[in-house]
């Protein structure tokens, strides 16, 4: 589904990603973790072309992200993305947030888009809030709306960029529950997250990054039981203490 092949990226002299290669199979849930500044958010933003990269290539469902002739808008329309800070559109109601891209990108008619939006809103348990504005919802609710907004586009895979990092601790679980459910239904997911509990329960594979490099790429049992690199061992030791 997603193939990342020897991707490197730099800002001027600063190397952000070095020779990153991995893949995400259909129906697979891959968690990307690592210390801050390790390039994991940058890597996931390369997957749908939000961040350009200088070397290597990424293929999503066979389409090259790096190729100049690729219609990135078309590709992104089917790659759902959820951001750390939700990024709902504050001037629109929840209903309109869910409909906008369906109407403008997928050319669905208004009623169809609204219906589909409400269906996914119901799935994340927020049907009753359709008429509200994002600013009137809690962080956890906003993030669930953001997931519903991505799902309404019928994505072939979902990218999560630290979806729970900006949330109050109490709200983290409501978002993780939605993600878990999604994973169990067989959605292909690539998640940048520090939630190791989520990784242990839901992920098939874990990628560990440090200094712009993929240091470990293993199935989760092997990763948690026996990380090969010293850096990953230190990271896990610190993060699993609590």
């Amino acid at each position: 589904m997603i193939t990342i092949d020897k991707v490197s990226k730099h800002y001027g002299n600063f190397q952000v990603l070095t020779d990153c290669s991995t893949h995400v199979n259909k129906g697979e849930v891959v968690v990307v973790c690592g210390p801050s500044g390790s390039g994991k958010s940058t890597l996931i933003k390369c997957v749908n072309g939000l961040e350009p990269f200088q070397q290597g290539d990424i293929h999503v469902n066979g389409t090259s992200v790096g190729a100049a002739k690729t219609n990135l808008s078309k590709l992104r329309a089917h790659v759902g993305m959820v951001f750390q800070h939700f990024e709902l559109f504050p001037h629109m109601t929840i209903r309109d947030n869910l409909s906008l891209a369906q109407i403008k990108v997928l050319k669905r008619d208004k009623d169809e888009a609204a219906e589909k939006g409400i269906y996914f809103l119901d799935r994340v348990g927020l049907k009753a809030h359709a008429h509200k504005f994002p600013g009137q919802l809690s962080g956890g609710q906003q993030q669930r709306v953001a997931i519903a907004r991505a799902l309404a586009m019928d994505p072939i895979c979902m990218l999560f960029d630290e979806p729970t990092s900006a949330l109050d601790p109490e709200m983290i679980n409501e978002v993780l529950d939605v993600m878990t459910e999604l994973a169990q239904e067989g959605m292909t997911m690539m998640c940048v997250t520090h939630e190791m509990g989520f990784a242990k329960r839901v992920a098939h594979r874990v990628i560990f990054m440090d200094h712009g490099k993929i240091v470990e790429d293993d199935n989760k049992e092997a990763f948690f039981a026996n990380p090969r690199s010293e850096r990953a061992q230190q990271f896990l030791a610190k993060i699993l203490q609590h």
Binding site: N48, F89, L100, V105
Partner: peptide, 23 residues
């Protein structure tokens, strides 16, 4: 505007002009 707003528009498949116009 938060930089993520533009990314959110683009990530949904909106073109850059559409993202300016609607988001």
């Amino acid at each position: 505007l938060p930089h993520g707003q533009k990314n959110a528009g683009l990530a949904l498949g909106l073109t850059l002009p559409q993202t300016y116009r609607h988001v």
